[in-house]
């Protein structure tokens, strides 16, 4: 490491990474610094550090806009769809990975290829169907769609993982007289925690960050998600940039904090789940 640092190339490498890191952080820095400025302060100086940091913007955002309510809505959707999808995927992937049945390979192939189908292709019939069933603007309706959209990835990842569990473990459990379900819950799942964490991370990010499904299938003001709320919020306070940025800081805080706290899980999750 120290020998490397002496090479002239190392300086260039550091410079490249520094620039890349700076560019990756610029929007975040701008967002945070601007949120701490007053309107007048921002008008004078759009780039520098706030001279006299103010927190009024945060207060007005929280008082005037239902950010917490939107976050709660998003949280409900994330929890509902991730739990539903994980349960269904665990069962399905377990069968695909360990049991022999007709159509097994086809099911895996079809499910995997669905990963790449863009959601926009599915919205027209689902929307028409939901209109007919009165399921537009219901949590159930949106959770079903989200759960469906994230499931192909879950099945792919879990199947791959379950296949790496040593066969002897299954056989030992089987000899002990354990049924399939017991093997799954008592033997396989405890071993699969890393894969499950990855799933939860990647899928939660997907649902939390989605906009398309949210604005089409949750039109009700009271059910608006954080991302849909942001689009409303940003239009309304367009010329109060510091206030807008305070809103964005609040909106990005949950995922940002989780990322900083659980970087290891996040990075591992992102690196193995990068297909999403």
């Amino acid at each position: 490491m120290s020998a490397q640092a002496l090479q002239p190339g190392a300086v260039v490498k550091q410079a490249v990474l520094l620039i890349a890191s700076f560019l990756a952080l610029v929007p975040t820095l701008y967002m945070v610094l601007t949120a701490l400025k007053s309107d007048a302060g921002y008008a004078v100086d759009k780039l520098g550090f706030p001279r006299a940091p103010v927190i009024d913007n945060f207060r007005s955002v929280l008082v005037d806009s239902p950010f917490l309510h939107w976050m709660l809505n998003s949280a409900v959707l994330v929890a509902g769809s991730v739990i539903l999808s994980t349960a269904i995927s665990v069962l399905g992937a377990y069968a695909i990975a360990t049991m022999a049945f007709r159509g097994r390979n086809t099911l895996l192939a079809v499910s995997t290829s669905l990963m790449a189908v863009p959601p926009v292709v599915m919205i027209v019939p689902l929307f028409v169907l939901y209109t007919r069933l009165g399921m537009v603007s219901t949590y159930t309706g949106a959770i079903l769609i989200y759960a469906g959209l994230i499931t192909p990835f879950s099945v792919y990842l879990l199947t791959t993982f379950f296949r790496t569990v040593p066969r002897e473990l299954y056989e030992a459990a089987h000899i002990d007289g354990a049924g399939q379900f017991t093997i799954l819950t008592k033997v396989v799942l405890p071993l699969s925690m890393p894969a499950l964490v990855t799933l939860v991370v990647v899928n939660s990010l997907y649902v939390w960050n989605d906009l398309l499904i949210a604005i089409i299938f949750l039109q009700d003001d009271a059910k608006r998600t954080l991302m849909a709320g942001i689009s409303v919020f940003s239009g309304r306070y367009n010329n109060q940039v510091p206030l807008t940025m305070a809103g964005m800081v609040i909106a990005s805080a949950p995922m940002f904090i989780l990322y900083v706290l659980f970087q290891k899980q996040f990075i591992r999750g992102l690196m193995s789940g990068a297909i999403k």
Binding site: D64, S65, V128, T131, Q219, D221, V232, G235, R236
Partner: peptide, 22 residues
């Protein structure tokens, strides 16, 4: 939240559900 800024947007966007039923 005060939504005075938005009535038109929301009105337009919901023509969708309405026409769906037509």
């Amino acid at each position: 939240m005060d939504e005075r800024a938005l009535p038109m947007f929301t009105r337009r966007s919901l023509m969708l559900t309405s026409a769906m039923l037509a």
